[in-house]
Design a protein around this nucleic acid. Structure first.
Lengths: 210, 210
DNA sequence: TAGATTGTTAATCGATTAACAATC
DNA sequence: TAGATTGTTAATCGATTAACAATC
């Protein structure tokens, strides 16, 4: 129950469990064992039980876990029982794709402010938002209580955008620029770089027979 | 020198080092110490030296690493000294964004075949490719020597697309569908799900003061 | 040579797994 | 009750870090 100090690797797996439970719910499954859930989530049964034990006791011996109940508990633990507004910086091809990505709204996230430094884009309407210049970040973010920033600018600009976001009260940054951002320890940064994943896998294509 | 058995976590970090070296090269830096490289890559100096030691000795005591030389070595180690053609399955909003993502070509990856099951999309020209139905995957992939697949279909369809890719000789899958794919151990699967990253970070927004 | 930094070993740290008592 | 599966402890495993001899 008390999140005394949960390892970050454990927290990182909770969204995977949640996603699997949502999948099971769509399939109409009501009850699931740690063994079955582990199979679907790609981890070991012991790991699921150990991970969950950091937060409480959610199963029933001899029976397993109630899918709907465990899902609700994970939503509560992760803090997903509310909407999370985000700021998107950068409206190039990538930024526009992020802007229109359907997966956010479904799961409680939405883009509540958009910024780009291109004069041709500033003032343009996108959905129900108007593109603003980055100088407006320090004013707009606190006003809209935005704590999450998405960085989708070229790598040269990414660090200065991140600094601006941090100065404006952002505490979580999802970085799509192919560069490692530095940020104070209280700001959480995660990175999405498809090429890094591809390069990682290519190592094995080259080093494994066939 | 001999990749006797390198831990996967080490291989996973090599692309980050490579990316940092490319950044340094753009900045005109020619020589770098493990301490400086570590700072930029967001890891510890000892970890960089330990990681590299699995593959050989690339530095010079008292001096550090030659940026250009270490970059070339990492490219060779990762198997990036060639072009890698990929197959993209799914041409919804996400698939189209992936199709037009500029980061691939720059770094030696390109989409060499596109598939979608929508009759309205099949036959359409995109760049210099023609959209084909998924049934063509087993024929087209071996013909074009494609070993990498990108999955960008709805979650319900993702596992069956993955199965089809595996049967057609793919050995690496980059999965954008929000579901954990199962695949035989010789096939490497990596996942990109921005919402999982956001959910992970939100835990700390909720659990840390302020 | 003196100073700096690597490459490598040994020590520490933490995460995963195995096993089983508790219990539904 | 008998069977099944959790929650939890202890053992294992592996990754990271610290430290320093080697060496440029």
């Amino acid at each position: 129950m008390p999140p005394t100090q949960v390892p970050d690797m454990v927290v990182a797996r909770l969204p995977l469990y949640l996603r699997t439970l949502e999948y099971l719910q769509r399939q109409g499954v009501e009850l699931i064992s740690s063994a079955q859930l582990a199979e679907l989530a790609g981890v070991s049964p012991a790991q699921i039980r150990k991970d969950l034990s950091h937060f409480g006791r959610f199963g029933k011996q001899g029976t397993g876990y109630d899918v709907l109940h465990l899902r609700r508990e994970l939503i509560r633990i992760l803090g997903l029982d509310r909407q999370w507004p985000m700021a998107l910086v950068g409206l190039g091809a990538l930024g526009q794709a992020i802007m229109h990505y359907g997966g956010f709204k479904e799961r409680g996230f939405h883009i509540a402010a958009v910024f780009d430094s291109d004069p041709d884009k500033i003032g343009k309407q996108i959905g129900d938002l108007v593109v603003m210049p980055p100088e407006r970040i320090p004013h707009e973010l606190p006003k809209r209580q935005i704590q999450i920033g998405i960085v989708a600018v070229p790598p040269e600009a990414a660090q200065s955008v991140a600094n601006l976001l941090v100065r404006s009260g952002v505490r979580a940054i999802l970085n799509y620029a192919p560069i490692t951002l530095s940020a104070p320890p209280e700001v959480h940064v995660e990175q999405i770089d498809p090429v890094v994943h591809l390069q990682h896998m290519v190592y094995y294509l080259r080093h494994c027979p066939q």
